[in-house]
Structures are given as structure tokens and as C-alpha cells.
Design a protein around this nucleic acid. Structure first.
Length: 270
DNA sequence: AGAACCACCTGGCAGC
DNA sequence: TGCTGCCAGGTGGTTC
């Protein structure tokens, strides 16, 4: 599920009703996420004020005076803001109970997500190796061109590499490569500067459109208000094997790159 | 350094 | 109806 647009949708939904509130309790029903949820979170956070919610790549960072609570949604996670009387459902693993009474609730069927305490995000191993943000000024065709020199891996793998650029997962890699008319198998080190300009623009345009649609919901993603996104209705190629390419009508083809499904138009993308 | 592959986990679906 | 096998939005770790 959650790539940059879904994580940012979650963040934007939480900010108005969460930032400035204090934590009154933390309830951990299932600590076995990707890494164990640290013990003693409730004792550490009770009474602490949430100063801001940041996003870095697909990570959310709840900022407190003493450090940050890092949340990752993995493949199937969602964070919703629910009233105190909302019944607990299956896979509701962690609650942040606010002094307003509202609860920030993490649901994650597959438990690939994470909740960790991070004292210094700038020096945390999960964060300090991350590449540029797609909407940062440092990101662009020039950057992609420079970083890709000498690399033989397919460009799809390259744009999904969080050490290069963050937030782009399988769906948006497929969609951005289609929009840029670049074949997903092309060796990243053999793509010209001007085509990388096109790709960088396509990445930003695709993410912007997805964000405007509240992200994508294929199965279980919901925003902080519990509502699904609807960008999946606008996919040009993802999950559309055999359907006509929206640009030329040729059937969309499917393949695989490093274990992930790839969709592309063989006549538009080179 | 870069690339290929596995691991983690549950749920949904196709096929029998 | 129910079983089996496969697939899924992510990413750290191991191996070559």
C-alpha cells in the first residue's frame, strides 16, 4: 500500500487534530511488528506534547521534545484518528491516546510496519541513508543522471531505490515510467540527461496527482479519516495487463523486475 | 559498490 | 465448501 502519497495523505489528515495535543496513554496490543515495539512507550510519552508530524520518505515522525516516534506503515498499515468509543478491530496493534480523547490507531494486518523511538533522526540508521525527497530542490533529471552513471540495473529498480530517491514504490514507479515513456527494463546508466528530466517531471506529476486523489487504495489503505483513496481509478498501466494503453491502445504488458510486478506499454515506452 | 535473492506476515483470490 | 498455491503497496539483511 503506502507509498509517498498515502503516507503524506495520512500525515496531512492527522496534523490538524493531533499536533499540539498531549499523549495521555499508549496502548500496545501487539508488539511484534517488523521490529518489536519498544517497551515503556506509555511511560515515556504520557504527558508529552506532539510538536509536529514530519514525513521522510515513507516514514512518519511524530516530534516530541525528547525525540521522535517513528511510524512506518509497511505494506498493509494505516493510521486513523478514531473516537474513544470505536471498537478495537483485528490488527489494531497500537493506540496513541490523546488528551482530547481521540486515538491515533495503527492497524496493520501483515505487521511489516514499525513503531520505534528515535532520539536523533539525523543519525538513525533507518533514516540517514535515505536519498532525496522527490519534491526537494535537489531532485531532478540532473540528480538522477549523475547518480545512475555506471549502474546497470533496470531504471525501474533504480527509481524504487530509497537510497536514490524516497517514497516511490512499485505502483508509482510503473506509472511514472509510463508517463515518461521510458521502458522499465532500460539500464539506468544508459539513460540520457534529457530523458531523466522527463522522468523526474513524471515522478512529481504522478505523485502530485495521487496526492490530490487521497492516494491509492487497492485493498486496505485508508487515510486518517478512515476513507480510501481513489487514485487507483486513474492508473494508466499498474495492474492493467492486457488493457489498452491509454496513449496508443496497444495492450499493456506485464513483467517482473527484482521480484516485483511491472506493467508497461511496449509501443510507448523505450 | 552493486545486484540478486530471501525473509518477515496475513489475507484474498483463482483453480481444483 | 474447502483445500492449495500464489500474489500483494516495503525494505533490511545476506550472499555473491
Amino acid at each position: 500500500m503506502p507509498e509517498l502519497p498515502e503516507v503524506e495523505t495520512t500525515r496531512l489528515g492527522l496534523v490538524p487534530r493531533v499536533v499540539g495535543r498531549c499523549i495521555s496513554d499508549v496502548v500496545v496490543r501487539e508488539p511484534r511488528l517488523r521490529w518489536p515495539v519498544p517497551r515503556g512507550l506509555a511511560a515515556r510519552l504520557r504527558g508529552a506534547r506532539i510538536r509536529a508530524i514530519h514525513r521522510r520518505g515513507k516514514y512518519l515522525l511524530f516530534e516530541f521534545e525528547a525525540g521522535h516516534l517513528l511510524v512506518h506503515l509497511g505494506m498493509s498499515g494505516s493510521l486513523t484518528l478514531v473516537p474513544p468509543e470505536r471498537p478495537v478491530r483485528k490488527h489494531d496493534h497500537v493506540d496513541l491516546v490523546l488528551d482530547s480523547g481521540d486515538i491515533v490507531r495503527l492497524n496493520d494486518a501483515r505487521r511489516f510496519g514499525a513503531v520505534l523511538w528515535v532520539r536523533d533522526p539525523a543519525r538513525h540508521p533507518l533514516l540517514d541513508g535515505l536519498g532525496v525527497e522527490p519534491f526537494d530542490d535537489a531532485f531532478g533529471g540532473d540528480y538522477l543522471h549523475r547518480v545512475s552513471r555506471g549502474r546497470r540495473a533496470p531504471v525501474k529498480q533504480f527509481v524504487m531505490d530509497a537510497r536514490v530517491v524516497t517514497g516511490i514504490g512499485n505502483i508509482y514507479a510503473n506509472e511514472a515510467l509510463f508517463a515518461a515513456r521510458i521502458h522499465p527494463s532500460r539500464a539506468s546508466g544508459r539513460i540520457s540527461r534529457s530523458r531523466f528530466d522527463r522522468l523526474a517531471g513524471a515522478v512529481r506529476a504522478t505523485l502530485t496527482r495521487a496526492l490530490a486523489a487521497g492516494g491509492s487504495t487497492l485493498r486496505d489503505f485508508v487515510g486518517s479519516d478512515g476513507q480510501p483513496g481513489h487514485f487507483q481509478l486513474e492508473y494508466a498501466v499498474y495492474g492493467r495487463e492486457g488493457c489498452p494503453c491509454p496513449a496508443c491502445g496497444a495492450p499493456v504488458r506485464a513483467g517482473r523486475h527484482s521480484g516485483r510486478s511491472t506493467f508497461y506499454c511496449a509501443s510507448c515506452q523505450h
